[in-house]
Design a protein around this nucleic acid. Structure first.
Length: 423
RNA sequence: GGAGAUGUGGCAGAGUGGUCGAUUGCGGUAGUCUUGAAAACUACUGUACUGCAAGGUACCGGGGGUUCGAAUCCCUCCAUCUCCGCCA
């Protein structure tokens, strides 16, 4: 959520940047500014009334103390009309505040200057590529067939237990999955991230804090009985650690990592995109998040991308880094880099990580601030990234490393799997 | 799940209807003193909105209510603690 004062001061810049998203915010922003004016004037009127009421109340108290009953009762009469108009003003005030909030929730984050304009993922910029696409033997098959052939993942059994999109990993498949999780966590820890194991369900306040609510209810599983949401990503519980927190300048940067399963309803998804591991309702992911000083957050964003690149290098997977265009940029992000690995048997790129700087957009909702050297409260910048999302990594590993003799495990993982080939 | 108790500023802990945004102690910041440090002393020390400013308003777990006036009374939700039940 953008701050009202920021909107007032940077109206034109915001509107200009919104063009990168193909988002026309002019009307909303004009309304916001107008409503904010209303808010101020109503507040002033209300404050004046309350001040008058407070003054009278004090006088009445004084009169009672002095035993001047008559005068006190007379003064009480005065407060009546004051109270009535006060109630009206209060209602007005609430209504305005509500509307204002509703509008503020509709404004996406302001894209960074370097975000390329564009309509869809086709307009994303490839800024880096690494690794050669392997040439597979002629009997090469996609990962869902490999999973079956080597008894690594049972999709049908998952359907029986729960439903589509909840696979069961077994044997070396389960072991490989666990190996990846541990590998990713160890790598993050080596890079200075503190590991946390957060709750897998969050309350409403947390879902609002990172921007899942309002609007994205449909993406999350919800337990009405307890008013809790299953997390769609570890970003939600981990970033919310810093909700309502005031940091010191020397606390920066805060670095956390965490492994969690992620739950997504993915309503409306269909087709070849959901085949095998490509899109699931439950999947594993290791997330990295940082809370950073606004002056350093872009440097940090680069560091995080480098970290993820390092993981892919060690896994020896061919990958590319994309700078997302405005049209593909998430609602809450100011700048995002996606990392995609090449799935050789499917002959397509699969997104395995998304690394974003949210600047103050989340911090404003989270009320995560720090005192600057001048003693003023400032919002922090929040960042996060997948490092990494497991299923598509698994898919690419299985497909790209298949040989007539079996599936080879990259060297970096062997210490974690305990085997170097699946056959 | 049942019964009871509690929820105040960074922490501890006063405050049971009126001048309380809140006594006090600790902590923190600045200063005096000192060669330096400690100690002692002095001052300052919550957040947000609003105003050029002086100031005003709101906030004592959240929400609502009673009252001229609420941290203080009532309702409700949440959290914590104790006891009982259940249980990985």
């Amino acid at each position: 959520m953008l701050q009202t004062t920021y909107i007032r001061e940077h109206r034109d810049l915001i509107l200009e940047r919104y063009k990168k998203r193909n988002f026309d915010g002019e009307e909303i922003i004009n309304q916001i500014i107008k409503l904010d004016d209303d808010r101020k004037s109503t507040q002033q009127a209300l404050d004046a009334q309350l001040a008058e009421g407070n003054k009278l109340a004090k006088e009445i108290g004084q009169l009672f103390k002095e035993g001047k009953q008559q005068e006190a009762i007379a003064a009480k009469e005065q407060t009546k009309t004051l109270k009535e108009s006060g109630v009206l003003l209060k209602e007005e005030q609430n209504k305005i505040a509500e509307e204002l909030k509703g509008l503020l929730y509709q404004l996406p984050n302001v894209p960074n200057e370097i975000v390329p304009p564009g309509k869809s993922e086709d307009d994303n910029e490839t800024i880096f590529e690494e690794g050669d696409i392997p040439v597979l033997h002629e009997n090469a098959i996609p990962h869902w067939e490999l999973a079956k052939k080597y008894n690594l993942i049972d999709f049908e059994l998952g359907v029986k237990i729960t439903g589509a999109g909840f696979p069961i990993y077994r044997g070396k498949g389960a072991r490989l999955q666990r190996a990846l999780i541990n590998f990713f966590l160890d790598q993050a820890t080596e890079n200075g991230y503190e590991e946390v194991i957060p709750p897998l369900m969050v309350n409403e306040a947390s879902a609002y804090g990172t921007g899942q609510l309002p609007d994205k209810e449909g993406q999350m599983y919800y337990m009405p009985e307890d008013n809790l949401y299953m997390i769609p990503t570890a970003e939600v519980p981990i970033t919310n650690i810093y909700r309502d927190v005031i940091l010191k300048e020397n606390d920066f940067p805060i670095k956390n990592t965490g492994y969690t399963p992620c739950f997504r309803r993915e309503a409306g998804s269909y087709g070849s995109d959901v085949r095998g591991l490509n899109r699931l309702h439950q999947f594993d992911k290791v997330e990295i998040i940082q809370i950073q000083h606004p002056d350093k957050s872009y440097e940090t964003l680069d560091n995080m991308v480098e970290h993820v690149k390092g993981l892919l290098n060690k896994l020896e997977l061919p990958y590319r880094v994309l700078k997302l265009c405005g049209g593909d940029l998430g609602f809450t992000a100011a700048l995002t880099f996606d990392l995609e690995v090449y799935s050789t048997a499917q002959e397509k790129w699969l997104e395995v990580s998304s690394v974003s700087n949210f600047e103050t957009f989340q911090a404003n909702r989270l009320k995560c601030r720090y005192k600057d050297t001048g003693g003023k409260m400032q919002l922090v910048h929040t960042l996060n990234g997948s490092a990494l999302a497991l299923p598509r990594i698994m898919a690419a590993l299985l497909e790209n490393n298949q040989t007539e003799a079996g599936i080879k495990i990259p060297k970096a993982l062997v210490a974690y799997t305990g085997f170097d080939i699946i056959n």
